[in-house]
Design a protein around this nucleic acid. Structure first.
Length: 220
DNA sequence: TACATGATGCCCT
DNA sequence: GGGCATCATGTAG
């Protein structure tokens, strides 16, 4: 089982930048959920940047509303919304207070609390499925296809970590007291690949999706 | 108050 | 690879 070693909580200033910069810099960092039962954590392997005014695909495009106000607040806060009648998506606010922008988390590589996350997702794990977690190149086709079902996709990821709008919208991701945090465990990303964002119709041509090149846990 | 739509995932072929 | 469930939100009327 992979154990989180010495980690550093990201600072608000990390998010006080252009969403494109933040989206790229977040790759390889670790999203941590603290529960009474223990720690759930996964490495961020896929993100998308959503800008403010001028980005037709961004929720902030039409201005501040009761739904999207977090995007206009201070950096480093969770923006959680409900989509397609079934799923939640997690974003983090970027740029200074008053300026909208965010990064969508699209996929995690499961690291810690995998059995709990699999249970939350309704995924059945075999006895040997946890071998080799956290290593550079997980091998075993069947095992990988099972583990990918846990958090490869924004809706899946939220279900695995128990993220909902009521529980988490507006919450700080950079507070030592928060039960939802983003930390640096020292992992260094070798290569980043960039492409168009997924599942949108407007402004679909912009290359604002970032993935760790070659990582098998990206959503597509 | 009604309606169209969506930053998705599942289940079936 | 494609159809469909399912509902909060925003906008129009």
């Amino acid at each position: 089982m992979y154990e989180l070693g010495r980690v550093t909580l990201l600072k608000p200033a990390f998010f006080n930048r252009d969403p494109r910069t933040v989206a790229r810099a977040l790759l390889g960092k670790v999203l941590v959920r603290k529960t009474p039962q223990g720690i759930l954590a996964g490495r961020i392997v896929e993100t998308e940047a959503y800008l403010g005014k001028g980005d037709a695909a961004a929720h902030a495009v039409a201005g501040k509303t009761a739904r999207n106000f977090v995007l206009f607040g201070p950096p480093g806060r969770a923006y959680v919304y409900f989509i397609y009648g079934n799923h939640y998506c997690l974003n983090v606010s970027c740029l200074p207070d008053g300026v909208p922008g965010c990064v969508l988390f699209r996929a995690l590589e499961p690291l810690t609390g995998i059995e709990e996350m699999a249970q939350a997702r309704g995924v059945a794990l075999g006895a040997r499925d946890l071998e080799g977690i956290g290593r550079e190149n997980p091998s075993g086709r069947n095992r990988l296809s099972i583990l990918r079902k846990i958090s490869s996709g924004p809706g899946r990821m939220c279900e695995a970590l128990g993220i909902t709008r009521v529980r988490d919208n507006g919450k700080s991701l950079v507070s030592p007291r928060s039960d939802l945090q983003i930390v640096d465990d020292g992992y260094r990303v070798r290569r980043v690949a960039v492409g168009p964002r997924i599942g949108i119709t407007k402004a679909a041509d912009h290359p604002l999706r970032y993935v760790i090149a070659g990582n098998p846990y990206v959503s597509l």
